[in-house]
């Protein structure tokens, strides 16, 4: 090629075109397939995220095997509680329809702590929620300080025994009066 004054500038221009081509081709290759499917982002991610496995189910999940407890709880003051809140996420218990492990069911000190995590009196807790000072409550009810909560309050229906007892005593009083 004959050397002339503009060859360098022309070659430089070609380099520029090459760089632009590289970006354009790079983008073609690197652009995710589902880009722009719904908007300016990778559309597939929506399905990837939607498909992510849940760890917690709902109470209806538990119902299919534990109908009895479900019914008991569903008509108690604890009806709004999630079963998995006190036990554990369902994935730790059931896999593909089969039981893989026992659900934890806390007792004694752990149980007291669990109950008190909601029912302990504390600054900031709403007034219309059943709260107790644990030791005072045990003293007032004249039970041993070592009592665990479920000795009076069955956890799935905390007021079951209480109302029961109240009813009986009331009736007894009626009987006595007669």
């Amino acid at each position: 090629m004959r050397d002339n004054s503009k060859v360098f500038a022309i070659r430089l221009l070609l380099v520029l075109v090459g760089i632009i081509a590289l970006v354009v081709i790079g983008r073609k290759i690197m652009l995710p397939k589902s880009w722009g499917e719904y908007g300016y982002y990778r559309g597939d991610y929506i399905n990837e995220e939607a498909n992510r496995n849940m760890k917690y189910g709902t109470n209806d999940t538990c119902k299919s095997c534990h109908e009895e407890v479900y019914q008991l709880k569903a008509h108690s003051v604890h009806k709004n509680l999630s079963c998995e809140m006190c036990h554990a996420p369902i994935v730790e218990h059931v896999k593909e329809g089969k039981k893989i492990a026992k659900m934890p069911s806390v007792q004694n000190k752990e149980q007291i702590a669990l109950c008190l995590s909601c029912h302990q009196e504390g600054i900031g807790r709403p007034k219309n929620f059943p709260l107790i000072d644990h030791q005072k409550h045990l003293r007032d009810q004249k039970v041993k300080p070592t009592h665990s909560c479920d000795q009076c309050h069955t956890v799935h229906d905390p007021m079951e025994n209480i109302t029961h007892a109240r009813k009986i005593t009331t009736l007894k009083e009626v009987v006595d009066e007669r």
Binding site: D3, N4, S5, K6, V7, F8, A9, R11, L12, V15
Partner: peptide, 19 residues
């Protein structure tokens, strides 16, 4: 760096200047 060019002409240098 010179993109395999060897131009030393005065026109070339004036053109460089403009660019």
């Amino acid at each position: 760096l010179t993109l395999w060019t060897n131009d030393k002409s005065i026109e070339g240098r004036k053109f460089d200047h403009k660019v």
